[in-house]
Design a protein around this nucleic acid. Structure first.
Length: 748
RNA sequence: UGGGGUGUAGCCAAGCGGUAAGGCAACUGGUUUUGGUCCAGUCAUUCAGGGGUUCGAAUCCCUUCACCCCAUCCA
């Protein structure tokens, strides 16, 4: 119930409450230049999910401002992905190219405002003029063209009078801005290319930074959610919208960390490399982290959505473990999918004492899956079992068939091994076995206990199928490129054997091959003549894990280097010395104050009002410093004098230190006098034990569990009780007194 | 290096001055005709490091460190 919201939802919630927006509008804005991957799924889930949760809507917008890379086939793939994941954009499918005329008009407006100019520097020069991260850039000599000239040139750019690269339109912002993105960003470039939607109507195209914010605005988007690498672009986003003085409400950009999953790559470039290099069969290769890949592999949309839900949304760059995804698909399929039997690596078993043929009625689902359904399972003298399910010299803990250990054939009888037939090389070619007639599944009266039940298929009735086993595409946890590729990521088994029910089923159905994993009929290569199954994911395998030796993970202890602190100036040093030697401040506080001119000045003034250096210094170095982080002293609503008064009433015991923070907050907001605030809010400290004790008694009575825990030695809980008492008194109880009383009462 | 961000367990991730949520992974044990599922339990004396403020700090202040993003006429 009390589920915590992610930071984006918290922002949306706030914006709705404050009345900033009437309706929440988000958008999923991919560039149609490649196939969507699971990172897009996260973005889709966030944008459509937030819209759904707040009863707004989400637009699907193709960000098609670069005609050289985009294509209709990608817009189809993108639409497919959104639909497959179960989201609906309704009528809200848009293209940035729809807005080209309006974006052009906005550009004209900027030119007329003197905020944009046509630059005729070469590409090379523009880069040079931009400067570097540490050096300011310099403005182009074309920046001071007249508005008329700019208008004329821009129109002629649009009319196709110039070649690619001859001119660009740039925003006139600041060539020395510390944010590189703000150094007169390009707004339009000339590109004589055929656009897949607007054809040859345009030969100038807006850049992302100009088109995106305006498209959002045009569509009435409220929250423009994108990934972290656009943080620096937010300044332009705001600049364009603000400079144009567009009628509110306008959209704001918020960034989250893109999805990374280990043992795979997620960038379009690297994905394309795999496709073009032939490392995979295409964008929909079941090993690809593309939506098309997962779809073909047999992942369900529910499992992907659930994965997106589980990984959360935050701003920390992170890499999610694939096992989290694998859990999601197993978890989903476990509840849904029929169990059938398949033998991947067959070895023949001849049941010497069985000469009949029967069809066993076998349930598709285990007892714990509440679904109905069964099929006829043919059983006969000759069957196949998995080669790995028999061992002549088994290790300890082996549960399957051995010369001395019987095993159950799932849904059928218990058998035991009577003879092992080998070829001249010593390889096992056949197992002779005997069955126990009274051990039939469901009516077992044999009394034989087995440790395991294994899958099998009847030799005559079994069907041959191709099974494709997939492993991770890369060997490295954070692969760089093809050099890290896993050469064994695909293993094809041409002649696996399945029970007949498997291929009589209709396509697009998933199975669990019992004890093996989940499988999906390949939607591309499957045919009646040649059935092909993709392994979606294996079952958890605690035996296989145990059998393999587990490698211990090396744990490195974090080492830390102490960095160098910048030296103080002479003035600062003098102040510092004065603070420590004459006023008795500790070095940390002295340091903070001495190094900040605003703080030291504030301190000096406050001291004139009330001479308590330590008290005043503490609150300035802590609380005032916080307020001054994004403000200047002149913008503060309270004065040094008022601050000194605050310290005074703390020191004379009128209010507690805790309450002083509350009073301070109020001073920040209103600039009122501290004593006034204390009076109107009734914040005077309660130190009388007689008033506090009954509250403590009540709380102790209400929390017997925690009292017991405390008495059992969990002394951390003292804070819990103190907190409750303080909460109960509105923070007014004297915490020192409360601490003492609580400790006393709990210990008796 | 200037600017913008981020550091909570092996991996994600809540937390916003008062008992360190949850999921994955891992590990016990139980159930089981899947070595699956399910169930019960274990798994952070501590939040990148160091200091400070406070009765009390993952949360506030100072400082150091590490990592990511920005110098495409890509998005």
């Amino acid at each position: 119930m009390n589920k915590s919201k992610d930071f984006l939802r918290a922002i949306v919630d706030e914006d709705l409450k404050s009345g900033k927006y009437k309706e929440i509008v988000t958008r999923f804005p991919p560039e149609p230049n490649g196939f969507p991957h699971i990172g897009h799924a996260k973005s889709i889930y966030i944008n459509f999910g937030i819209a759904r949760d707040f009863k707004g809507h989400c637009n699907l917008r193709m960000d098609d401002t670069d005609p050289s890379k985009e294509d209709t086939k990608y817009v189809e793939a993108l639409k497919d992905a959104v639909q497959w994941l179960g989201f609906d954009w309704g009528d809200n499918l848009y293209f940035t190219s729809n807005y080209f005329p309006r974006i052009y008009d906005y550009a004209i407006k900027l030119i007329k405002m003197g905020k944009a100019y046509v630059d005729s520097l070469s590409e090379e020069e523009i880069r040079l003029y931009r400067g570097t991260v540490t050096e300011a850039g310099k403005r182009s000599k074309y920046a001071n063209r007249s508005i008329e000239e700019n208008l004329d040139l821009f129109e002629r750019m649009k009319n196709g009078e110039f070649k690619d690269g001859e001119h660009v339109l740039r925003a006139k912002i600041d060539m020395s801005a510390p944010n590189m993105k703000m150094r007169d960003p390009l707004l339009y470039r000339i590109r004589h290319a055929h656009h897949f939607r607007t054809g040859d109507d345009w030969c100038i195209y807006p850049m992302y930074d100009f088109a995106h914010c305006l498209s959002d605005y045009i569509e009435g988007v409220s929250h423009s959610i994108c990934t972290l690498e656009f943080e620096n672009n937010r300044a332009i986003y705001d600049w364009v919208l603000d400079t144009l003085k567009l009628e509110p409400p306008r959209p704001y950009q918020h960034e989250f960390a893109r999805l990374g999953i280990n043992y795979t790559v997620m960038s379009k470039r690297k994905l394309l490399e795999l496709v073009e290099g032939g490392q995979v069969s295409g964008w929909d290769d079941p090993r690809m982290p593309t939506i098309a890949g997962y779809k073909r592999r047999g992942y369900t949309p529910e499992s992907i959505l659930n994965f997106c839900e589980q990984i959360g949304i935050a701003k920390a760059n992170s890499m999610v473990d694939v096992s989290q995804l694998e859990f999601c698909i197993r978890d989903d399929l476990n509840k849904k999918v029929p169990r059938v039997m398949c033998v991947l690596d067959p070895i023949k078993v001849v049941i010497e004492n069985y000469d009949r043929y029967e069809e066993i009625d076998a349930s598709y689902y285990p007892h714990d899956v509440p679904k109905e359904g069964s099929r006829k399972l043919p059983f006969s003298k000759e069957i196949y079992i998995e080669r790995g399910d028999f061992m002549q010299n088994p290790p300890k803990g082996y549960f399957r068939l051995t010369p001395t250990q019987p095993v159950r054939l799932k849904h059928a009888y218990i058998i035991s091994c009577s003879e092992v037939v080998k070829d001249s090389n010593g390889n096992i070619t056949e197992i002779k076995a005997r069955y126990y007639p009274e051990s039939k599944s469901g009516s077992d009266t044999s009394g034989i206990k087995v440790k395991s039940a294994i899958q099998w298929v009847s030799a005559k009735e079994a069907k041959r199928v191709e099974v494709r086993l997939y492993d991770r595409l890369f060997l490295a946890e954070a692969p760089e490129g093809v050099e890290d590729i896993n050469p064994n990521s695909l293993k094809i088994i041409k002649n696996a054997l399945v029970e007949p029910a498997v291929i009589s089923e209709k396509p697009d159905v998933r199975f669990q091959f019992e004890r093996e994993g989940y499988f999906y009929a390949d939607p591309v290569d499957y045919s009646d003549e040649k059935p092909v199954f993709n392994k979606i994911v294996g079952l958890k395998d605690s035996w296989g894990k145990k059998a393999k030796s587990v490698k211990p993970k090396p744990q490195s202890k974090k080492l830390h280097v102490e960095g160098e602190v910048a030296p103080m100036s002479e003035v600062e040093q003098k102040l510092f010395d004065n603070y420590t030697k004459n006023l008795g401040l500790n070095s940390e506080i002295s340091n903070t104050l001495a190094r900040d001119e605003q703080l030291s000045h504030f301190f000096k003034e406050a001291l004139c009002e009330f001479n308590s250096p330590i008290g005043i210094a503490n609150i300035i170095a802590n609380e005032v410093a916080r307020e001054l982080k994004d403000k200047r002293v002149d913008d503060l609503k309270f004065t040094p004098k008022q601050l000194a008064q605050l310290v005074k009433i703390v020191e004379n015991g009128t209010i507690s230190n805790k309450i002083s923070k509350q009073v301070f907050e109020e001073m920040v907001k209103t600039g009122e006098n501290p004593s006034q605030i204390v009076q109107t809010k009734g914040l005077v400290q309660i130190s009388d034990p007689a008033k506090i004790e009954p509250i403590i008694d009540e709380i102790i009575a209400k929390n017997p569990d925690n009292v017991a825990k405390f008495r059992a030695g969990n002394t951390k809980l003292l804070g819990f009780f103190v907190g409750l008492v303080l909460k109960n008194t509105g923070g007014k109880a004297n915490p020192k007194v409360v601490n003492e009383l609580v400790a006393k009462k709990l210990n008796t």
